[in-house]
């Protein structure tokens, strides 16, 4: 995983709540068997509307997406964070995220930052008026910009992994003997699909 320490970038305001993963990357693009090639299909259906935020030239360089509550609800498709990241986003800021999306984002080094609802409202107002640049610092856990500074919380272990770009499969495999020990104590009547 790519490590994440701090990022400064332009904000694109997507003022909608419950943005679901079907919108982020519609199903017709889930048939690919690769991890790449999703960026150009981000918000595919919404992008056919010329007024859609990401079609506006002033946001073409945006790398921070600001969104409404419950961002990433719906399907567990990890293609959603892949698409956001491959499009060029490094950070998503919203009042709250759907659980599975939040996990998937962190596993890919895409930072999902929850701020308080009033803070998000303030950011929407500012981003709607003029170009808004923010710095999201994972070391200090703060989002800051001109006349704006807010702390955020993030699970400390996830933060540690992100800061150091750790591969969590590798981390778990360090505890292989504990897994094996646990396995040895499982009841024998539990189902196995075939002898392994």
């Amino acid at each position: 995983m790519e490590s994440f320490r701090s990022h400064t970038g332009l904000v694109a305001p997507l003022d909608r709540a419950n943005v679901d993963t079907d919108q982020i990357i519609p199903k017709q693009f889930l048939k690919r068997i690769e991890r790449t090639g999703y960026g150009e299909f981000l918000f595919f259906d919404w992008r056919s509307d010329a007024g859609f935020i990401l079609n506006r030239p002033e946001y073409s360089k945006a790398s921070i997406l600001l969104a409404g509550r419950n961002f990433g609800c719906g399907s567990s498709r990890e293609h959603a964070p892949w698409a956001l990241q491959q499009y060029g986003f490094r950070v998503i800021i919203a009042p709250c995220f759907a659980d599975i999306f939040g996990n998937n984002a962190l596993k890919n080094g895409l930072l999902a930052v929850s701020l308080q609802e009033p803070e998000v409202t303030t950011l929407f107002e500012r981003a709607g008026r003029a170009a808004l640049e923010l710095t999201v610092n994972l070391e200090s856990c703060r989002v800051s910009g001109k006349d704006f500074d807010a702390p955020f919380t993030i699970d400390s272990f996830a933060r540690h992994c992100l800061l150091h770009g750790l591969d969590d499969i590798g981390l778990t495999l360090q505890h292989e003997s504990e897994i094996a020990q646990f396995e040895a104590g499982r009841p024998l009547w539990m189902p196995t699909v075939h002898g392994d």
Partner: peptide, 9 residues
């Protein structure tokens, strides 16, 4: 439900 990275895990 889990994502693809977790499936791999």
């Amino acid at each position: 439900g889990i994502g693809t990275s977790e499936v791999e895990h």
